[in-house]
Simulated assay, not measured.
Amino acid sequence: MTIDPGIAEIRKITEQLAATDFPVSIGAFVAERAAALGDAPAAVWFEDGLTLSYADLHRRSDALAAALLARGIRKGAHVALMMANVPEFVLSWFALAKLGAVLVPVNTAYTSTELDFLLNQSDSQALIVDAALLPAFEGMSRRPSCLDDARVFVRGGGAPYASLDDLLAEERAWTAPWPVVSTDLASLQYTSGTTGFPKGCMLTHDYWLLLAFSAAGGMGADQIRRSLLWAPFFYMDPQWQLMMTMQLGGTAYVARRLSLTRFFDWVRDFGINYTSFSEVALKALPPGPADREMALRYVNAWGWAPASVREAEERFGVVARDSYGMTEIGAGILMPAAAVHKLDKRTCGVPAPFRETRIIG
């Protein structure tokens, strides 16, 4: 019996994942990637002129984990992280993972009322925050009882709080004081709260590893070397996109925020192979001879109409595919690269690896 090529592709990826010896934790993943890739560039904050290698990410997150441990942050502690797309976000995230602490990403646009809800509802016992965002914290009416000034670590600031810059500068040696395993809680990822206050999803280390490795399997290791990340890191997408890029041994180019006027210049200038963008961005760029000069190979075309998918593939020579996921489950349904016979349909695909779907009603 002939198997649909899209389903065959997902089965193959699922088999490869089932045979994979996954790292035991996000921290172990960072260490393994550093051992394998060393001084190769892992992430480039190109608007700030800063590049961190795989070794840098590992070494500096080790040092920050040790500094946070010395300040009383322990395994299981809930630590809110409120920063824009800066290197310290990634270093703090990896440091907390190595400690076994629980990351609570915070929307940088939150008001004092929203921050009050999130910090109390998540039982946050510490806060890592950019100095520019302190007014929202200082305007709260109910600070969690255990969140005193000594547990507020400020990027670009200091007294009466602790300076995150000073913690990083200490360059302490790190020795893990306890094991962190795949089923340990890694983060409380809050949803967008479209219909009310957001809810926190409890996500384990293996959730993030499976999501990143699954995405890497679908992209093609021989195709993706440079990815463009533009969404805020407090959302889940750039978190798995960075880990996916690291799993592929590539380099992530990190933008401060999305710019429709500069987006395709970034794609061209940095030789980007993978990114995501909206139909609005596609329509904002008139077709031209430079389209085929881009190095793009794969685009997440979330929610695109079939005509837009076809346009992108013809103009840029890319694979553009839809998918559907939720914070609670990660990838749920995806359109395989091999499913070219379905591109004229409004579909987001077939069940992702290790997922099942049902049609109800």
Rank of each mutant, 00 (worst) to 15 (best):
S141K: 15
D184F: 06
A176S: 14
A176N: 01
T204E: 14
F137Q: 09
L134N: 12
R143V: 15
L118H: 07
L185C: 12
D166G: 01
T194V: 09
E171H: 07
S124M: 01
S182L: 03
F197Q: 13
E171K: 12
L168K: 01
D165Q: 00
D123I: 05
P198T: 00
L127C: 10
D148Q: 13
S187G: 05
G200R: 02
R143L: 15
L168E: 10
D184Y: 06
L133N: 07
G158R: 05
G156D: 12
M140C: 13
C146D: 09
Q189R: 05
S163F: 09
D184R: 06
F153I: 05
R143A: 14
D130T: 08
P160K: 00
V154D: 07
G200M: 04
N120V: 11
F197K: 10
N120R: 11
P135K: 11
S124N: 03
A131E: 15
T183L: 04
P179C: 00
A176I: 02
F117N: 06
Q125I: 07
Q121T: 11
T191K: 03
P135R: 11
M202Y: 08
R142T: 11
A131V: 13
L167E: 08
A186C: 14
V129T: 13
D148Y: 06
S122F: 01
G156V: 10
S192C: 06
E171C: 03
S141M: 13
S182H: 07
L164I: 05
L118E: 04
L119Q: 05
G196D: 09
A162H: 04
F197E: 12
L168R: 03
T175H: 05
G193R: 04
E170V: 01
Q189M: 15
E170Q: 15
S163V: 11
C146H: 03
L127W: 05
S187A: 14
P160V: 00
V152E: 07
P177F: 14
S163Y: 09
S192D: 08
D148V: 13
P160C: 00
A132I: 10
K199M: 06
G139L: 11
A186D: 09
M202G: 03
A169T: 10
A150Y: 03
P144C: 09
L203K: 07
W174V: 02
E138L: 13
L188G: 04
G196I: 08
T204I: 12
T194S: 14
S192K: 01
R151T: 12
L203F: 04
T183I: 01
S145M: 07
A173F: 00
Q189G: 09
V180F: 05
F117H: 12
A176Q: 13
G196V: 09
M140W: 08
D149M: 05
P177C: 14
L168H: 04
A173Q: 05
D130M: 07
C201F: 00
G200Q: 04
D116V: 03
L164D: 07
T204M: 10
F137R: 12
G193F: 03
R151S: 13
G139Y: 09
R172Q: 10
E170F: 02
S124F: 01
L167H: 06
D123E: 15
